[in-house]
Amino acid sequence: MTLLRLELLRLRAQPRVRVAFAICLLGPPLLGLVLSAQAGLPRDTLFGRHVKESGLALPLLVLGFAGTWALPLVTSIVAGDIFATEDGHGTWQSLLTRSRTRAEVFTAKLQAAVLASLTLLAVTAGSSLVAGLALAGDQPLTGLSGTQIGAGRATGLVLLSWASELVPLLGFTALAVLLSIATRSSLAGVGGPLLIGLLMQLLSLLGALGSAANALLTTPFAAWHGLVRDDPYYGPLWQGALVSLVWVVGCLVPARRILLARDIT
């Protein structure tokens, strides 16, 4: 068995990961049901006003909602805990007194965190798309350029939009890994990225940063705004990828160094 499979095996057995998975799977259909039972529409969130017109609006509504705070939380539930949990259970000495090196253990844990984040993202995307289509059908969607987009193309754009969230999500994964290793505390590993994400959102909301807000890790969560259109623009997506890459490298390099040099006490 590879180290990665061992990490995934242990992730699957953890109650908190199971709960996160269930929320990602059941949250969107529940939201869809609540919305279709209500008379009003969530007009303050993008695509909220179209939720009853087209089933493709729900996954984008969920995306707009999730991108602001839920996605950093989703990734930190796994990535912020996957290292610190060994401190909590006193299991570093069990892991690091075997035949595998620390670098191998670091890589496997990182891979497991990325895979888990990816899975949770895909589950939320799939579940909200299916729920939307089931509740409101596959009518054309009014995109952000004011034109109607046919269901087939719109489905592709919805999936692409969700996939674009992976870029900042990996940045948050790296941040959570760093906090998890540096603080040795699951609380800081899970809560830290969430708090930092909220602070970044707050900074953006104040609007005082101007274009400098593009350096924040939360900004790429909105890069999909350029995709759900007749003529998509990808600028924010590439910028977001660059910004996230800087965050990923800036977090993972010290994280790995700390773990490799650390005295397990």
């Binding site: 068995m1 180290l3 061992l6 095996l9 242990r10 057995a13 953890q14 109650p15 060994e86 259970h89 006193g90 299991t91 570093w92 000495q93 069990s94 892991l95 075997r98 035949s99 595998r100």
Partner: peptide, 18 residues
């Protein structure tokens, strides 16, 4: 240390695989 959410056997199986 041990992983409380695994059984005793599973705990050892994880370590044995390493």
């Amino acid at each position: 240390g041990s992983w409380p959410y695994l059984t005793g056997r599973q705990n050892l199986q994880v370590l044995s695989a390493m």
